[in-house]
Amino acid sequence: MAAIEIRNLVKSFGPVKAVDGVSFSVEAGSVTGYLGPNGAGKTTTLRCLLGLVTPDSGEALVNGERYVALSNPVAEIGAVLEATSFHPGRTARNHLRILCTAAGLPDARADEALEQVGLADAAGKRVSGFSLGMRQRLALASALLGQPRVYILDEPANGLDPAGIEWLRGFLRHLAHDQGAAVLVSSHVLAEVERTVDNVVIIAKGRLVRQGSLAELTSDGADAVRVRAAQAADLAPALEAAGGVVEHVEDGLLRVRGLDPEAVGQVALDRRVVLTEVAQERSGLHKVFLDLTEGR
């Protein structure tokens, strides 16, 4: 049984189809990135999963059950949604204690969770004085209260400084890889999650575009070299002879895989071909992400 299972989820707001038949699952012990541009339907999917929004059709299950059917949801799944969901006049500790009371957890969990996210010193401060990064940490602390095995984080890196993002990255990987939790983290900024996630689910305009492991997705666009030369037609066979896979992009422009720029330059020198451009193409998840989501 998957920790998170989304099956043919559909949700419209008026005429807008926010989520249109999305299916994917998240397994324990891994971090899955839920990626897509703003407005792609990420938040709506997560809110359906958490019982905050009722889907038009399809299912969203946590540990095989609908969220509203969980007897003690806080102990099964921790969610971090917007960073603004605090009463500004309340202290961080009181905010967490209220959740503990409602969930039947001891008050001591509030301080333990604050310790875990590095907010112990600010426990008695009103949230109105918190920076965005501190609010994100507090939101994360609230997800930790019930010590669940499944975590959902909606754009958790928003408002974090680079050190905070690095900390979050380590924290999420620790939860998944050391504690065996299932972690689903959404983002519209790839750079934030690229080094955090094991698996990727990409969504655009409410539809699932691609899913797979990070390695599978990034291998597509890796190691390509753009080569521009007037005598491209002469150069191509030589590059292939040297072990490259050559693609003719347009007249005078080649895309070569399997060779690095230095090897390409060496082949050109041997063949006495003048190169007007040699460039390593932008590769990795970024390109995959842009290719898959642009123009859809």
Binding site: G51, P73, V74, E82, F86, A102, A103
Partner: peptide, 18 residues
């Protein structure tokens, strides 16, 4: 209304979905 104003309603319903 303060639950809606400050969106604490989200945390409230996450803790108590019924």
């Amino acid at each position: 209304t303060s639950e809606y104003r400050y969106q604490t309603i989200t945390g409230t319903f996450l803790t108590t979905p019924r």
